[in-house]
Nucleic acid binder design. Structure first.
Lengths: 341, 341
DNA sequence: CGATCTCGTTAAAACGTTTTACAGGCGTCG
DNA sequence: CGACGCCTGTAAAACGTTTTAACGAGATCG
């Protein structure tokens, strides 16, 4: 019924109007309930809609109203440590929960993986708002989103911008990891962070250094380009293990680095966790499938994603909301990489 | 520069035209390279664009051209067995790879999780095409997509429709699983399938029955509503294990069912794999994080997703492509749930 | 009873872009 | 030299919807 053989022109609101004997404006009002229309008229309109199989042109509507009914989720974490086809990570976990939450508010979620030409999404498709995951201080997506003033909520940390943020408690995360390493018996441990300007690295580093000073431990900080990914971590950590035989613990906020470190330990012929304990922050596929499985933090990303969507809705509506919303407290998940089963 | 204090009206193509002293049409042609414009004119236009900070209105463009520059990925697998915030699955794995591939072609990917109001995405946002994952014969999304004649590529099986398809080799999948179970020593095994009309269930069932007949094995098929998810599988499989003490193997195309079955075996006080071997089809988080880890198939979903995107591009362009494209052959991943380490 | 208000409806404008049809200039060919 | 074609540019239409301003009819009020 709805489409005739020769791929006819789609039926428009004026066709409906004509069929129902009313004006296009009335049809619009009837469908969107923007103004009251008399019951009898409404009925005629609805019947015409049904008979003609009218379905509103989303593109035209979006054009006219300026509302896109969709939001995007970005992450500037480079591919080697973020999502990859087989290594679903942070981004995808948030995307899954966010998509569901967004849909609940009538918004579609467009998924923007960390590839070089990702910014073109902002040029070629219209979105009402964006989620930005753990931006660095000089985040490229952050720049563009701000320039276009697209309502944006950041997840983790605002990266120094004034965008609203679902704030991770980085100090608490660091403390959980540090304390657990000590409790597990480590006395001299290595911190592996990324070299980007992300809050997670900075916070982890300062908490680590503070603790080192307090306990008199000699600090070892390895700073790694995130592009190097897991293999890079293996290589660099192996070097350190050779130079600093006293190291008996490794912590990293980046799961790819931790899992790379695990490799390095194995290659060095040391045992996990007996000789060296390894702990990471993000409990993703890498942590759970490592051998031995990695102790990590439950970041409760599904709840974080929902909070972010809720906050973004406010922002899009032009309402005023809190500059930062605290994320739920992370919880330690103890696994065999730090304690003997 | 780009936005003045009082949140001024966005600069449009006519503003640029005025500033450059040309017509809007020329600006359009200059930007899109639809026609040649003289070098000197082009230069004036580009300068004006830069100075005014013009950025084309994606919504208007999409409205005018009818191209949305985005595609959607749907799965009608109910939430209990498909993606969930913490159980990233089939859908998300394909989405991740598809998003990357799509972006490569200048298309954004909108992620449509299996929630009740998912169909509204088709009403409220415009898309050029869709990916539909393993549709059942009476798939609700399939219906709508066909009605609206939105170019669609199905993944796995076309669900009886005439949509182009990246075809899984279900018989081969079944054979790999059946043969491996036998090789691992199982002699009387149980097949757990969903009750929906999906090709995977039908193919698995018929291969199973054929093999049973050929080898003289008494067949046990458990058909389960997909909505029941993992817990439902545990309950029902437990019952069967009680009634049929001879069962020494369990296979299921659905990872949630297999992992539920694993629970049932444990509850029954039987050992995996010594007493009962368990094998599943989809190698997702559930399979890899189960205890013991589940033997499964590598479906090479990243390559499947890329194939699907390539095929969809053709379909959107109105070109003619193959009705079915074979997916790469699956490969068995042997894990402790079927053989002793 | 005239003025004012409310209610349902409508005509027309507006959104920003691409595209179509045309115009003028200039070179080329017959 | 006229006809024709090519090249660069432009005016105007078109896309389908929402929104604004206005309109007529009836009700209400002074």
């Amino acid at each position: 019924m709805t489409n005739d053989p020769m791929r006819l022109k789609r039926v428009s609101i004026t066709d409906v109007a004509k069929a129902a004997g009313v004006s296009p404006a009335t049809v619009s009002n009837a469908l969107n309930k923007t103004r009251h229309v008399e019951a009898e008229t409404l009925d005629r309109v609805m019947r015409a809609v049904r008979e003609l199989g009218y379905v509103p042109n989303a593109a035209a509507r979006r054009f006219r109203t300026g509302r896109a009914n969709s939001i995007a989720v970005f992450s500037s974490m480079p591919a080697p440590v973020a999502a990859g086809p087989s290594k679903l990570g942070f981004l995808m976990e948030i995307a899954a929960a966010a998509a569901e939450a967004a849909l609940h508010h009538g918004l579609a979620l467009v998924l923007v993986p960390p590839v070089p030409n990702a910014a073109q999404v902002l040029r070629d498709t219209s979105i009402d708002g964006a989620l930005l995951i753990e931006p660095s201080a000089d985040d490229p997506f952050g720049q563009i989103l701000r320039d276009r003033n697209i309502p944006t909520v950041t997840i983790g940390d605002s990266g120094g911008s004034d965008m609203p943020c679902i704030q991770f408690d980085y100090p608490l995360m660091a403390r959980l990891m540090l304390d657990h390493l000590r409790d597990a018996g480590a006395r001299e441990f290595l911190l592996v962070v990324g070299s980007s300007k992300r809050a997670t690295h900075a916070a982890m580093r300062s908490a680590y250094l503070a603790q080192a000073e307090a306990t008199g431990m000699t600090p070892h900080v390895l700073e790694l380009d995130e592009e190097l990914g897991e293999a890079g971590a293996t290589r660099m950590v192996a070097e350190i293990l050779r130079d600093r035989p006293g190291v008996d613990g490794i912590m990293s906020p980046v799961d790819a680095f931790a899992s790379g470190a695990l490799q390095a330990v194995r290659l060095a012929g040391r045992r996990v966790p007996e000789d060296i304990r390894v702990i990471t922050r993000y409990d993703g596929a890498r942590a759970r499938e490592a051998n031995p499985q990695l102790t990590a933090l439950n970041l409760k990303l599904d709840r974080v994603a929902r909070l972010a969507i809720d906050r973004l809705i406010i922002e899009i509506a032009g309402g005023v909301g809190p500059a930062t919303t605290p994320a739920p407290a992370p919880a330690l998940i103890v696994r065999p990489s730090t304690v003997i089963a």
